[in-house]
């Protein structure tokens, strides 16, 4: 297990509950992460992301007028004007399987249940560093591969594997 120096990261925190933003900012500060953006809901986050070069987006789920899943979809679609591959960590007290599946379908990378601990936040960030999943672009989905585990595929895998840089991917999108 590596001990990472995270001080150079820009982290965006989105939660409508101010104490939660306060707690997360305090945890990140302890790890040397001082470049932190904050927003109280998805719409505010989309505005902030235009000028804040986030490396990680940490977001709550239920917020008004734009919730965390809509925010994730906006990022993945490119509408947000930021990196569509931006790693997204959803932190929520909605822990039912339905919510987890919705989060996965919205393009969320990692999921963490509230109440949180600092260790669990770090483990999720570490997972995004060490085990980034490939992305899938399909007719109705763009986001991290939803096949979390490496299960054997029966029959033909229809997915074409493409190793590319972001620049090439964006160029491909313009064509």
């Amino acid at each position: 297990m590596s001990d990472y120096d995270l001080a150079s990261l820009h982290v965006m925190i989105v939660d409508d509950y101010q104490p939660m933003r306060h707690i997360l900012r305090g945890i990140l500060r302890e790890w040397g992460i001082l470049k932190v953006g904050e927003a109280g809901h998805g719409r505010e986050a989309l505005e902030t992301l235009k000028n804040f070069p986030a490396d990680i987006l940490i977001t709550d789920y239920r917020m008004f007028p734009i919730d965390g899943l809509e925010l994730a979809k906006s990022v993945r679609s490119g509408e947000a004007g930021c990196d569509p591959y931006l790693p997204i960590l959803l932190i929520t007290a909605f822990t039912e399987m339905k919510t987890i599946l919705e989060a996965r379908d919205a393009g969320v990378n990692e999921f963490l249940a509230k109440p949180i601990s600092a260790k669990l936040v770090y483990y999720r960030i570490r997972s995004m560093i060490e085990n980034p999943r490939p992305y899938v672009r399909a007719e109705e989905f763009f986001g991290p591969d939803r096949r979390r585990r490496s299960l054997p595929i029966t029959g033909e895998d229809r997915r074409e594997v493409k190793q590319e840089t972001k620049g090439l991917e964006r160029q491909g999108e313009r064509e």
Partner: peptide, 9 residues
Amino acid sequence: APRLIVPPN
């Protein structure tokens, strides 16, 4: 067909 993209990290 769905494309599997391996972006930089």
